[in-house]
Write a protein that binds this DNA or RNA. Structure first.
Lengths: 213, 213
DNA sequence: TGAAATCATGACGGGGCGTCATCCGCGCCT
DNA sequence: AGGCGCGGATGACGCCCCGTCATGATTTCA
């Protein structure tokens, strides 16, 4: 049995979980992410300190740096995580959509629902005037933008709609969605339907008026 | 002549400039602002350090803190300065405008011109992915937003346009202007006319489609 | 079981932060 | 003119955060 790959003996015979090294690694990474989310939520990004995050995990300072290089990097990981969870939702809307209107309505609705759901875990006690997750251009967030543009292109072509400046148009749509989404979260009660309706109508009305390059 | 207010003798008899104390005060404040602009331009906001700014002024560290409490506060002062310079331009557009379209076109054109002009003094060598002046809600910037909303209200009423959700609408318009403005600056050559046309048409088209509360 | 790989640990040097006791020179009075 | 008082410039200081690295503990694997 010398040429057979070796696996360590585990308490249970069928236990083929990864080894302990691997498990503590993911546990640590997760602990850091959780601590960071809590700290950013309580102190805000600017005020938060790598040490604050480290203290909350109970790990040694050196350990933190085995996983992330800086506060910025943890934050990006958190933002990336959000974008990664949103991406399949957006993809589903793109696949289902047959025309621009249905796609736009579905995507914005999905985004606002997502925002409202995430709201609780982020807006806790956050200092005013701060810039947050959406603002950074992490790889995963860039991917979401690209996907939106691609979906726009696909769906507009399907509609036989005249060409527009896709970069400007995508940027403008995302800007509207972000801003209306933010304002929506500040109102009580939070009215996802109303906000989505507003954003969709504004974009839908604007589209046919756009200059044709 | 005992009850006559005393003024120190100046080299020239008609020299009624403020005293040296006052002059060095404004000079220091200005020096800090200039140094900060340069440092933020070179290093970006995140990487910049209060010490970097101090070093560039040649002042002592304690002196800096006689004028501003933190890096954030200098930055806000810079942002406020921009907003303060833009405000009269916006005001002029508002006064001149007779309907929504003319106001919107004038205001966006003015904003984009302003952006392009400021571009040089800000974008120098700035690290990618950073959030900048527009993002912070300084008093003067908030005032600009309020002014935009007020102008919208005035001009829409003048048009006998049906009521809209002014907060959402203002926010959406500013978001579009910001985003298109940003994208405009990234293109070569910078095409203010094209960008302004795009933004204006998009908003103008969207307006009549909006839900009426 | 023992050697090697892996990784958590926390002390450390470096440096930025904001303060404060000190001192200087301008403004003001006689 | 001469001197005094005070606004404000100064920079050393103590504090804390930063990122690193030599060390040691634990896991992996033959």
């Amino acid at each position: 049995m010398s040429n057979i790959a070796y696996f360590p003996v585990r308490p249970s015979a069928e236990d083929n979980r990864p080894g302990k090294r691997e498990r503590t690694k993911v546990a640590n990474r997760q602990a850091i992410l959780d601590a960071a989310r809590a700290v950013f939520g309580e102190l805000g990004y600017e005020a938060a300190t790598v040490r604050d995050i480290i203290r909350r995990t109970g790990l040694a300072s050196g350990t933190f740096y085995n996983y992330y290089k800086s506060k910025e990097e943890v934050f990006d990981a958190l933002a990336d995580d959000g974008a990664r969870r949103f991406r399949p939702i957006l993809r589903a809307e793109s696949d289902r959509a047959v025309d621009f209107e249905s796609f736009l309505r579905g995507a914005i609705r999905a985004y606002f629902d997502f925002l409202a759901a995430e709201h609780e875990s982020w807006r806790i006690n956050r200092p005013a005037g701060e810039v947050f997750p959406h603002a950074r251009a992490t790889p995963e967030i860039v991917a979401v933008f690209d996907e939106v543009r691609a979906a726009f292109a696909k769906v507009l072509a399907h509609d036989h709609a005249p060409a527009v400046d896709l970069d400007y148009f995508t940027a403008a749509c995302i800007a509207v969605a972000r801003e209306i989404g933010d304002k929506m979260l500040e109102r009580r009660p939070v009215d996802v339907d109303g906000a989505a309706d507003f954003a969709v109508r504004m974009i839908l009305g604007g589209l046919p008026a756009l200059p044709r390059p």
